[in-house]
Design a protein around this nucleic acid. Structure first.
Lengths: 341, 341
DNA sequence: GACTGGCACTCCCGGACCGGGAGTGCCAGA
DNA sequence: TCTGGCACTCCCGGTCCGGGAGTGCCAGTC
């Protein structure tokens, strides 16, 4: 049997589409009937034999229909899936829902819910990464004479706060001076450069304030560096229990993973983070528990990418619809951040 | 057959304990053997017949063992369950883990994980309720001449922020005056009184600042009143999938409920919020989807109750252990908030 | 009167068995 | 190169059956 030809690709497409729709192995008769290919079931069978040989589809058991393999889905996504844009109504809903957000937290919360609802999958949204943000303002609030609260606001809208215990009592003026100092040094600077700047900070203060400035510098470092652990929001876990989605056994490890920031970041981030949109199918996730799982992610941000968002579902998912939804939402969130800059 | 007596209570205790441990209906023979009651299986059978008649236990089907009803668990909790304190090691772990928290967010996050891990159930922790907190400080940060960020810090450590678009440009001094004004009026005041105070706020500013002060007042009101939606953190959803916990069908509605703040608050809060510790078993939750679910909650806070925390699991749960864990964690979190006040 | 041993009865559960149906692979013919 | 036909495989749902666990009741004992 010769090589891959157009009809074989059409057969693969039919199998993927039908399998996604019905969740059942699809047979040669169904393909030849429902997908007007103009050939008989027997011919389709020959093509199927080829596709199976080539590793794009497989049989759950002898004398059952075929289901796509990860490789089959990959080919479908790369060459066959025309993404189907959101309906006008959906697009309007996205815009309306997101435009009502009142601060960054709200944007993220709404985004993650929206994605879950549009795709009927589990959605994950990373907060704008501190690494890729700049300092907009640092505020020092004295709570008691020896206790300060540091509030850092970034250009992506994130607000981080920390308590600092001071080695000595601070006067009102001391606080003002420290505030002026840290803002002078850090305002507008990318957080990636911050550690270097902070290291020199204490030296720039009045000598009497050196110990205090050091304590402050230490906390700032922690906020900036140690807190590089990224924050993520998750929604739609209930979608994992949709009828044929995940059998009881494979559900548990996935629910567990959803509470592990590390795993989530690994799924979202990864090296190829500059691609507009990434689809990782089955084993491509390089995680045992996600061998039956596809992750669709997109970067977002005002101009450059400051974070990722995506959804996670069974390899047997509606790729065209999911991809369209993730892309549309990522774009619109980027616009919002742009406006708020 | 006469009335309830001590031995019948012991039989009920045996049934509850065995059923919780094995997840299987327990028969008369097992009870008489494992729980040295000093009577034969036949006698136990008579007691069981009484307990069933009285509604404390039931048979899944004729000729099966017995399992406790909600009413049976209720009696067990009220009269039979001696709570078993945490082990020294566990207590140390709680203290160590929570004492490392660096801010309120961190306290809540750590608490919810800790509860989930200690009890092997789903844990839910409400952030300190704004209604029951007081204003510690209000900070105004000008981002652009017409754009302000309001940061509110409460005595429970919560930090809320909002952007405000100003009707006119503000000078540095204007911002200072507004900051002085709002702090003068609100500092130390319970948020419950805030709406009244805020309403009069604009009138107290210099005439030129009236429009600005009004805009600010409006946003403050929103932050205080409209944002009365409480925040909650959830962890341990994966525990729902523990072997016999929830069959596939009943899992979905619970996962869905866990993403609905409204439902969570209903489970946590409720009128009787002054009780030290509340156990709501099955139907007592008044929610259809939680008919097989028990919720154990405790209030926490420095001195007075500012929020609730709890865990949620199958009615068939280890009550003594769960109750002890929730109580211990709630107490320790209260201590921490006390220290930070 | 309270407890016990014995016994007949009920019902679940797992395994074996079976027939229908869907799907396949292959072959011979157009 | 495609097609119709045909024998074959295997899953799936239903039925049947025997063992086992547990019960309710009863008659007998302390």
């Amino acid at each position: 049997m010769a090589a891959m030809d157009d009809r074989k690709l059409e057969v693969l497409r039919a199998i993927v589409e039908d399998y996604v729709a019905t969740q059942e192995p699809v047979g040669s008769k169904a393909v030849s009937q429902r997908h007007s290919l103009g050939v008989s079931a027997a011919t389709v069978r020959n093509d199927m034999a080829y596709l199976e040989e080539a590793g794009y589809i497989q049989q759950p058991h002898t004398s059952a229909g075929r289901i796509p393999t990860a490789k089959g889905y990959r080919l479908f996504v790369d060459r066959l899936g025309k993404i189907k844009p959101l309906s006008a109504a959906e697009r309007r809903a996205v815009h309306r829902f997101l435009s009502e957000a009142i601060d960054l937290d709200d944007v993220v919360t709404r985004t993650v819910r929206l994605l879950a609802q549009l795709t009927h999958q589990v959605a994950v949204v990373q907060y704008p990464s501190l690494n890729r943000s700049s300092v907009r303002h640092l505020e020092l609030v004295s709570l008691t004479p020896t206790r300060l609260m540091v509030v850092m606001i970034t250009d992506t809208g994130r607000v981080e706060q920390r308590y600092v215990e001071m080695p000595a009592e601070l006067s009102e003026d001391d606080v003002l001076e420290l505030r002026r100092l840290v803002n002078e040094q850090l305002q507008g600077k990318p957080l990636a450069d911050a550690p270097r700047i902070i290291a020199d900070l204490a030296g720039l203060a009045r000598p009497e304030l050196h110990p205090t400035a050091s304590a402050l510098a230490r906390v700032l470092l922690e906020t900036v560096v140690a807190r590089t652990e990224e924050r993520v929001a998750v929604a739609g876990a209930a979608n994992l229990t949709r009828p044929g989605n995940f059998f009881a056994g494979s559900l548990r490890p996935i629910l567990e993973a959803l509470e592990e920031e590390v795993v989530l970041m690994q799924l979202l981030g990864r090296a190829d983070s500059n691609a507009l949109l990434t689809v990782r199918i089955g084993d491509e996730n390089n995680l045992d528990d996600f061998r039956e799982t596809t992750v669709v992610t997109a970067g977002y941000g005002p101009g450059s990418v400051v974070g990722h968002m995506g959804v996670l579902g069974p390899t047997r998912m509606d790729y065209p619809g999911t991809i369209a939804a993730v892309r549309a939402v990522a774009r619109y969130v980027s616009e919002i951040l742009e406006q708020n800059r």
